[in-house]
Design a protein around this nucleic acid. Sequence first.
DNA 1: GCCAACGTTGGC
DNA 2: GCCAACGTTGGC
Length: 162
Amino acid sequence: MQYWLMKSEPEAFSIQDLKKNKTTGWDGVRNYQARNLMRDQMQIGDRVLFYHSNAEPPGVVGLAEVSKTGLVDPSQFDPASKYHDPKADPENPRWIMVEIAFLEQFKQIVSLPEMREMAELDGMMVLQKGARLSVQPVSEAHFKLICARAGSQIQKSQKTKK
DNA sequence: GCCAACGTTGGC
DNA sequence: GCCAACGTTGGC
């Protein structure tokens, strides 16, 4: 299983929205590196740290899992969408997305300043200067550290099962 | 609201 | 294929 961090501005789509909707197609990604990760690397069941960017404070607010892969992002063909891509070809769509499913909203968010203080998270991509990539790979160790810090119920129950 | 970092575009 | 100009991201 692989681990990821996905950024969303809470004003656009928050963890509360995901909780309410249960699942969501991760549309609107218009960065090739992020697309390639979704298209080529992500697998059903992968765990996702849900990250609020442009928030006060920014940080990891919950958990999701990849529930569908290889979906065509419909917004590329929608002229009314701000993600409309006039160069997108319906015969050969360029923007591929995944669907993620809600798992948990953390009781305690793990804020960016807090993460910066955790020496064990050294090297984590989201902490690098200028790390704008909205879909990022996360190591298992970093993933677990953040879940532990958040008091994640899901991670706890997983541990007792094993 | 500022601005550094970064990705993309398009002229050449 | 280079690279300057421009737009966007996102922390602060």
